[in-house]
Design a protein around this nucleic acid. Structure first.
Lengths: 174, 174
DNA sequence: CAAAATTAATAAGCAAGCGTATTATTTTGC
DNA sequence: GCAAAATAATACGCTTGCTTATTAATTTTG
């Protein structure tokens, strides 16, 4: 098994190294720490802000729709909306056409948040890509988008295997 | 504000786009989902396995030391070790020299886990980098390592600012 | 048209991570 | 030497996220 070799200031790592598996996790955690610090003064968390971002794109969405756009469960969205409602940023309204549905609408208090989120986002991204030129940052984000899709595909394939015709696809799991 | 342009099969995204901020989070979440599915049959979660990985590198570590190596709070490590101990993978022993310290030692049941973790890690990484050639995967991981360090530096700088001479550095926060 | 299946939301429980406070122990400094 | 500061672990509370189960409402179907 190959490992890390450290030079003056930069470490290079075999991408199959065991530590590699946790780089992505650390990046997400550290970004969330930064973001949460910046948003805390405004009484918001990163995930709550992300819900608001969905509503800025399109207001009056059912919770289910928000969950799908965020790739999280309806339960998680329920909790986030609950807290956003308690803080006066949004309001839940039962859909008159289909009374199973609760639609989430922005309240005036949420309006200034958009600008704040943009500012915080820029700050976190500029910390993330400090020392990278713009072209490289762009190239990395394109790769990241591909990686994200790879993982979605893998998760999708995995569930299919678990629920359907394992033998036909020859994709059996341990 | 610039947005996404979709071509035949790949989307390209302006790295300053608001969605970019959540790519990293999604990648970490999706990887954890995959990893947890693979580890679940062995009664382990990703984070618990990560603690074991630290102990494979060096056994008999104080919880504080594990926390530092994982960049996580002592409370989190306490919980993880608690569950690992309940499942019989490790044991906590009070250090005789300094009785504040509890050292964590691997038990025999943990030994087979190393191989399993390696296997699962390879599987998750290969899903992550599906369609990338090895050189590009390597280059991305090197960039990721740099990004991780950038974020650590930013967090460090931020705490300094919050605790020390704001005015001198001209880095005041809202 | 009534029974069965589906759907949106919530409830309940677990794991992880963060922050603050508390306890026990050790180290420092006067 | 002894009081004060520092340190390791835990207790407690909060947010996020996942899973499974339940409830209420709608759609499908026989």
């Amino acid at each position: 098994m190959r490992h890390i070799l450290k030079t003056e200031s930069v470490e290079f790592m075999d991408y199959t190294d065991r530590r590699a598996g946790f780089i992505f996790k650390d990046i997400a955690r550290f970004r969330a720490r930064l973001f949460d610090r910046l948003l805390a003064p405004h009484g918001l968390t990163t995930s709550q802000a992300w819900v608001l971002a969905q509503l800025f794109v399109e207001d009056n969405l059912p919770q289910k729709e928000i969950a799908q756009r965020m790739d999280v469960g309806t339960v998680t969205v329920g909790g986030l909306v609950e807290r956003l409602e308690a803080r006066g940023f949004v309001e839940r309204r039962v859909d008159e056409e289909d009374r199973r549905i609760k639609r989430v609408v922005l309240k005036p208090a949420a309006i200034p948040i958009g600008r704040i989120m943009t500012t915080c986002g820029i700050e976190v991204n500029s910390a993330t890509f400090a020392g990278f030129d713009e072209a490289l940052a762009q190239q990395i984000m394109d790769s990241m988008l591909k990686v994200r899709q790879n993982l979605l595909d893998a998760l999708q394939a995995d569930t299919e295997v678990l629920t359907a015709t394992d033998i036909v696809l020859g994709k059996e799991k341990a």
